[in-house]
Design a protein around this nucleic acid. Structure first.
Length: 842
RNA sequence: GCCCGAGUGGCGGAAUUGGUAUACGCGUUCGACUUAAAAUCGAAUGGUGAAAACCAUAUGGGUUCAAGUCCCAUCUCGGGCACCA
């Protein structure tokens, strides 16, 4: 009696795989049949000091199961591995300990590699990449320069999210509910000159191609929401009057009495004033626009504000800009201030006041809106508070009264009519457009505004350009230098990579610049004979991961970021698996793909064909695992406790559907260990052997089930099918053929044990096929229903299945059926094809 | 507020095309082996009921010979976006 010893078996096979370089990607030389390639990858990990956690194991095990499945099917498989190593944890550690991030990173990588090998993953270890290796980031810098050459990497001074603890600027995607995604500190706004990638140039294509992707629906929706496309119009409002003449507080107070006082003739204009452009999705409501609102950051404010109002307005703007996003959101009450200046509504020719309020955002549209309080709840609220006029221009259809009564903001009424209706309806108070349905009027009104040269149709996006500057040391240095006038110049390609200088203190300097600024010699650089100063910002880590999938095809290439021949063969990535970065990373990598496709470097426009988005593994109590809660399960502990890697991997795939969160169960993993022990015993301690024919049905059924499950990533049900097969073999006894099939099907999940079994059985690991005709037994069970309820079961020979008359006769002869028929005739007998079921209607 | 996703035994979950609801695993109970325990093996296990049967897939309706699955409404939970004009 041999005992299943996973630790010993796993050690043996890991050594063999290492020596044979078993998983090295090979391009097949076969010419007789078209060989399919398969490029699989997980989202590469950030190698933390804590080592692999069970979440990594789940993620890697999914990719590993598929890697082995396709390898066993003799496809050309590429499954590389890498490390995403730039980032704050390593830098903070360096600041605290003085140990350089390179050294700490190297130690962490060594540990991760060792642990990944202990799990027996089928990784091509000759293709390991590390984003903080100069051989890698040389090409990250090259990518930056390509974008810079085309004007898609540019500098802009603007208000940016700033984390006061991490001392760095953050991208929109890295601000979660007004807090830093890393340290949780409340973020601030700071005006700085920053580098951006112009991702908005691809907004349309990023949006329109989403539907064609084989990605989970929730990721696609998240990306669509993020891009946030809105169709509407840009409308230009002329300034009616400069402050002094008719502005001031008393005039503003007069305005509150309503429509009657607006529409005075404009006073003398003493200055040339800019027009105010607004964006609206509802140009059909323009006749109801009774005031304009500018964002506090709007550059025109200082030019148009009246002298009387100037002090108050600038004070308001200053405070609003300083306020954090949280403070702005917490204060739900609308605030604002009148500029003392008026604009002309181009549709009505009437004078309307211009206000400033922080409910208008500078980053979207034009940073200015035309307020239509009758049909927009926010404008309505604002108008109520400051007693501004409300003009209804859309008549709510009476037919959908009930629906809209509910969606009304407050049920308040003016003149007995409900106000602030934001749906569609017939236009009123809209001059020549009266009577037209609002949805039909949009185009006509835009055309009319266009004829008057005051408006045009326009599309806007919520998505902003991608802020990539980071004031940190441990990132990819931006390959830029400034001349004495402060103009940016690309570091010439032959001077790449721009490598980190050695410093002794990794903390940012007092001005908020990264520690790179402390390396005085390094800062000096000569380009074309001119003395310049290097950029001290580094790139957002997401830049490094926006092209790594392509580096995998030729990780050692010294002449290009990726070898054109290799990329043509292997890319795009066929299956990509991860459980994070739904928007940021997966949007950025698509953006770079489209850019490099446009530049002729990539022969495809979407980088990832199929995306698998796996769920988290939570602690047994259902809560997130975290060091502070002390509920972390360490995968290496699980392995070393005697279960081994095969049990751990199989368990994590069996725990539930791969794309849903799951809670760790210390008990349930024992069931998987029992299952593997039974597989071992069937092979090494057989009690009886039987002919291959005995289990022919279940064997073929299992091959079919597992194969189909692998194609749809149904790992949990595939393991369940294998368990059923093993249970059956325990009952019936197993043939060599049964065991060979079992071992082959088991290999994607428990590769060490499966290899051990196949060696014993003297078999290769080629994926088995099933015989469809063998799936059908001689007799099948037919279910008899009366009025849809199960009343009896019949055993019917397969060749009699098609004989509906005979089946009906047999069914009606059943005692229990007779009981329900009560001597009468059935109204109807239904025998659906293929269903093995008869339904008798009485 | 808007947009996704999901609600099935004591628990994790299965049911892929409308056709036997609860596969597989955990747990529990009983039995075998053992001086005993563990391990292992076998059996049972949605609820009520002696049985026949009835009731069960968040709730209420509907379509259908037949609904976990399709349609309408409601509730709850999870996720994304959120003063985006």
């Amino acid at each position: 009696m041999q005992k299943y010893d996973p630790i010993k078996i796993e050690e043996k096979w890991q050594k063999i795989w290492e020596e044979n370089q078993e998983f090295k990607a090979k391009k097949s030389a076969k010419t007789d049949k078209p060989v399919q390639k398969m490029f699989l990858a997980e989202m590469f990990p950030y190698p933390s000091g804590a080592g692999l956690h069970v979440g990594h194991v789940r993620n890697f095990s999914i990719v590993d199961a598929l890697t082995r499945f396709y390898t066993q099917q003799k496809l050309d498989v590429l499954r590389p591995f890498g490390y995403d190593t730039f980032g704050l944890p390593a830098e903070n550690y360096a600041i605290k300990t003085g140990i350089s991030p390179e050294i700490a990173t190297k130690q962490n990588i060594d540990n991760f590699r060792k642990q990944a090998k202990r799990l027996g993953f089928a990784i091509d270890w000759s293709r390991e990449i590390n984003t903080s290796d100069p051989k890698y980031y040389k090409w990250t810098q090259w990518c930056f320069l390509k974008l810079f050459e085309k004007g898609l990497a540019y500098q802009k001074e603007s208000y940016q999210w700033w984390c006061p603890v991490d001392q760095t600027v953050l991208a929109n995607e890295q601000v979660e509910n007004g807090h830093c995604w890393r340290c949780g500190t409340e973020v601030e706004k700071k005006k700085m000159k920053q580098w951006f990638f112009k991702i908005t140039a691809y907004a349309d294509e990023l949006l329109s191609e989403i539907d064609s992707l084989d990605w989970p629906e929730k990721i696609k929706t998240a990306q669509k929401n993020w891009i946030g496309r809105s169709e509407g119009a840009e409308i230009s409002f002329e300034i009616a009057e400069a402050g002094g003449a008719a502005g001031g507080t008393p005039a503003a107070r007069n305005e509150r009495s309503g429509v009657s006082t607006v529409g005075e003739t404009a006073g003398d204009r003493t200055r040339v004033l800019p027009n105010i452009k607004v964006f609206t999705t509802r140009p059909d409501t323009i006749f109801g626009a009774t005031f304009l609102v500018l964002a506090p950051e709007h550059p025109a404010i200082v030019k148009i504000v009246s002298d009387d109002a100037r002090e108050k307005v600038l004070e308001y703007c200053k405070n609003a800009i300083k306020k954090s996003e949280i403070e702005r959101q917490e204060n739900k009450e609308k605030t604002g201030v009148f500029t003392g200046t008026y604009a002309i509504n181009p549709a009505t020719g009437k004078k309307i006041p211009i206000w400033v309020s922080d409910y208008v955002l500078m980053g979207y549209g034009e940073g200015a809106i035309m307020a239509v309080p009758a049909h927009d709840e926010r404008d309505f609220e604002f108008a109520n508070k400051f007693e501004l006029p409300v003009i209804e221009v859309i008549e709510k259809p009476e037919t959908d009264e009930d629906v809209d009564a509910v969606s009304m903001s407050s049920g308040e009424k003016i003149d007995g009519k409900k106000i602030c209706y934001h749906g569609e309806g017939k236009l009123i108070n809209s001059d020549r457009f009266n009577g037209i349905d609002s949805s039909d009027a949009r185009e006509g009104i835009i055309n009319w505004l266009e004829e008057m040269k005051v408006g045009k149709s326009r599309v806007t996006y919520k998505m902003r350009d991608w802020l990539i500057s980071r004031q940190r040391y441990w990132g990819c240095p931006i390959p830029i230098a400034y001349d004495k006038d402060g103009n940016p110049h690309a570091i010439p390609e032959d001077q790449l990579p721009v490598i980190h200088p050695e410093v002794s203190d990794y903390a940012p300097d007092s001005t908020g610049r990264s520690a790179l600024a402390k390396a005085k010699d390094w800062l000096k650089v000569t380009i074309d004979g001119e003395e310049m100063t290097r950029e001290t910002d580094t790139l957002d880590g997401y830049a490094c991961s926006s092209w790594y999938l392509w580096r995998y095809v030729s990780p050692d290439c010294e002449t290009a970021a990726w070898d054109p021949e290799e990329i043509k063969y292997w890319a795009p990535t066929d299956i990509y698996c991860g459980g994070d970065h739904a928007v940021a990373h997966l949007l950025y990598i698509r953006f770079w793909c489209k850019f490099f496709a446009d530049e002729g470097y990539l022969p495809f426009r979407e980088p990832i064909k199929k995306l698998l988005y796996n769920g988290y593994i939570n602690a047994p109590d259902g809560k997130k695992m975290s060091k502070s809660k002390g509920n972390v399960i360490d995968p290496l502990d699980v392995i070393n406790s005697g279960y081994g890697a095969d049990t751990l991997r199989t368990y994590e795939l069996f725990i539930g559907p791969y794309n849903e969160d799951a809670a760790w169960s210390t008990k349930a993993i024992g069931g998987v260990y029992r299952f593997l022990t039974r597989c071992f015993n069937l092979t090494f301690n057989p009690e009886k052997t039987v002919e291959a024919e005995v289990n022919v049905v279940i064997r073929n059924k299992t091959v079919k089930k597992v194969t189909e499950d692998m194609h749809r990533a149904g790992f949990n049900t595939a393991v369940a099918a294998l368990m059923e097969f093993v249970n059956e073999l325990y009952k019936n006894g197993a043939s060599t053929e049964d065991l060979t099939v079992l071992a082959k099907l088991l290999k994607p999940f428990a590769p060490h044990l499966a290899s051990e079994m196949l060696e014993e059985l003297k078999a290769d690991d080629e994926w088995p096929t099933w015989d469809e005709s063998a799936l059908v037994a001689d007799t099948v069970e037919v279910v008899i229903q009366v009025n849809g309820k199960l009343r009896a079961k019949l055993s019917v020979a397969v060749d009699e299945l098609a004989d509906t008359d005979k089946l009906t006769e047999m069914a009606l002869a059943e005692e229990n059926v007779k009981k329900y028929l009560n001597g009468g005739e059935p109204k109807k007998v239904i025998i659906p094809p293929k269903a093995k079921l008869i339904n008798i209607v009485v």
